[in-house]
Amino acid sequence: MTIRKFIAVVALINALVATYLHLWKIGLAGSLACGGGSHGCEYIQGSRYGWFMGIDVAMIGAVGYAVIVLVAIIAAMPKFEDEKWPVRVLQLLIFPAFIFTLRLKYAEFIILQGFCRWCAVSALSITAFTVLIVMEWKRVQRLPAA
């Protein structure tokens, strides 16, 4: 599996999880399957850090991951597999998401002193994407010019 395909698959999983969290937050998904006691997922999702500029962070994640899925699928197509532009587009999506995730993790761990398993999966995924997209950029940089 290529880096681009891996990013597409994992981003799809994260888009579904983020959609689930958003649906829970707006009351359409029943109870939240997480656990974690009094400082778990519900506590984190319900905090002021569960919103950014009036928008649900889970919705931001769902949309962001969906766009990453779309771009990664296009980038994985044989005619684009050695092109640089799809990597640049993925970088433009992934790098800000990584910075945003750092902000969220700081709020979760330091300010709220809580832990959300779903948020941790997203944080690990976006961190892996950051490393992988740098590796992919280095790979396409080494390719001979077309």
Results as ranks from 00 to 15, higher is better:
G27F: 11
G27N: 10
G27W: 13
L28K: 13
L28Q: 13
L28E: 09
L28M: 14
A29S: 10
A29F: 03
G30M: 11
G30S: 14
G30F: 12
G30T: 12
S31T: 15
S31W: 07
S31V: 14
S31H: 13
S31Y: 10
S31P: 00
S31F: 11
S31M: 08
L32V: 05
L32S: 05
L32E: 00
L32Q: 01
A33R: 05
A33E: 10
C34H: 06
C34Q: 07
C34K: 09
G35T: 13
G35P: 06
G35S: 08
G36F: 01
G37D: 09
S38W: 00
S38I: 09
H39S: 14
H39N: 13
H39E: 10
H39K: 15
H39Y: 12
G40C: 10
C41A: 10
C41G: 10
C41R: 05
E42M: 12
E42Q: 15
Y43T: 12
Y43V: 14
Y43L: 12
I44K: 05
I44V: 15
G46K: 06
S47M: 08
S47W: 03
S47L: 09
S47A: 10
R48E: 08
R48D: 08
Y49N: 01
Y49G: 05
Y49D: 00
G50L: 06
G50H: 04
W51E: 12
F52E: 05
F52W: 15
M53R: 02
M53S: 05
G54M: 06
G54A: 07
D56H: 14
D56W: 07
D56A: 13
D56R: 08
D56C: 05
V57S: 09
V57D: 06
A58E: 05
A58Y: 04
A58R: 09
M59L: 15
M59K: 09
M59V: 14
M59E: 08
I60F: 05
I60G: 10
G61W: 01
G61L: 01
A62H: 14
V63A: 13
G64R: 11
G64H: 03
G64K: 07
G64M: 08
Y65H: 14
A66K: 12
V67I: 15
V67G: 06
V67E: 03
V69F: 08
V69G: 03
L70P: 00
L70C: 13
V71L: 03
V71P: 00
V71C: 03
V71K: 03
A72W: 08
A75V: 09
A75H: 01
A75I: 05
A75K: 07
A76F: 00
A76Y: 01
A76R: 02
A76D: 12
A76Q: 02
M77Q: 13
P78W: 08
